[in-house]
């Protein structure tokens, strides 16, 4: 996926038992972001695969002052790429991981 300068990873082992994930996002390459942000802080949040959208979470992060509006697309894309990967892995694993 195109490198947004942001890294998103699972904050906890994916138990696959429900649609909720614990994710962690932080800035890996500050030069790739346009607006103001905090470099060495990781933001942990829950993401519900059925109810949430990456855009909505990115919007909340911008509203909370973690990122500038101009970076919300990059934040959403980073979350979307990771969630898509997790869904693919879940599909490949036997039921219940």
């Amino acid at each position: 996926a195109e490198d947004t300068g942001l890294r998103v990873e699972l904050a906890e082992e994916d138990g696959c038992s429900n649609s909720s994930l614990a994710l962690r996002l932080w800035v890996e390459d500050p030069k790739k972001l346009k607006g103001k942000h905090k470099d060495n802080e990781a933001i942990e949040f829950s993401f519900n695969l059925e109810a949430d959208t990456p855009e909505e979470v990115a919007y909340e992060m911008v509203k909370s002052g973690f990122f500038h509006e101009s970076d919300s697309k990059a934040v959403a894309k980073s979350i979307r790429d990771r969630v898509t990967l997790i869904k693919k892995i879940r599909e490949k694993k036997p039921a219940g991981c």
Partner: peptide, 27 residues
Amino acid sequence: SSLTQVVHSAGRRFIVSPVPESRLRES
């Protein structure tokens, strides 16, 4: 810990903590 901060926005909880040193070196 004092380094962790919890922020709520529209019912969503964000837990902010320092990026582990090891992860910073990785990038």
